[in-house]
């Protein structure tokens, strides 16, 4: 039977350093994925994930189990992502309109919208469309991005997000609402519903 998070934490707190490996293996994918979605990925994502776990380890003697380990881990991850974002914000950034053509190896091409006429659950994202969605997420403010990533991409509940970000549940709801409204605008070319007589399109 797998030890619980709390059991592993207590073992680390008792001096069993190797028990931390169990927590790393259990959560490395979620933390890495969250970092990629918050920062846009790249080589820094692995470094930042490593930084998250080292920070968690170094402050594990202050963990008292009042919140779940996962919530605490997400809080550290979110804080480090914000720090990284602020550092990166000082460097000049290049942003691109979603309507602009994407440059490919053979020149520029338009990103095709998915075929929504088939079962939407079976709609697959082309690599280019994935890039468009990631780009749209990165255009959100860090506050909105954190909430929509945690809820819509990682499946955390309102309450878990509130605990991880140390904000009220009502704030989670309003940020999620605003984030979705912004994403709706940004991704409209790919999700537009064709109206019977209107000009819409896929």
């Amino acid at each position: 039977m797998q030890p619980t998070d709390l059991e592993l934490v207590e073992r680390v707190q008792s001096g069993d350093t190797e028990a931390f490996g169990g927590l790393v293996r259990r959560y490395q994918q979620r933390v890495y994925s969250h970092v990629c979605r918050m920062t846009g990925g790249g080589e820094d994502a692995a470094d930042l994930t490593q930084e998250v776990f080292v920070k968690v380890y170094n402050s594990l003697n202050r963990f008292r189990g009042q919140a779940s380990f996962q919530t605490w881990l997400f809080r550290v991850t979110a804080n480090l992502c914000v720090d990284r974002h602020r550092r990166a914000a000082r460097a000049p950034q290049v942003t691109r309109s979603l309507d602009a053509p994407v440059a490919g190896e053979d020149g520029e091409f338009e990103v095709e919208a998915p075929d929504w006429e088939q079962n939407p659950e079976q709609v697959l994202l082309t690599a280019e469309l994935q890039q468009e969605v990631r780009s749209a997420i990165l255009q959100l403010s860090e506050k909105l991005r954190a909430v929509v990533v945690m809820h819509d991409l990682e499946g955390l509940s309102y309450e878990e997000i509130a605990a991880a970000l140390a904000i009220p549940v009502g704030t989670v709801k309003s940020r999620l609402f605003n984030a979705r409204a912004a994403l709706h605008e940004l991704l409209l070319p790919y999700v537009r519903v064709r109206s019977a007589g209107g000009p819409g399109g896929k």
Binding site: Q29, S33, R37, V123, V133, L187, V191
Partner: peptide
């Protein structure tokens, strides 16, 4: 929109 978000592949460390 929600489907596009959920259909993003999980990044592998």
């Amino acid at each position: 929109v929600q489907h596009l978000l959920r259909a993003l592949p999980v990044d592998q460390p």
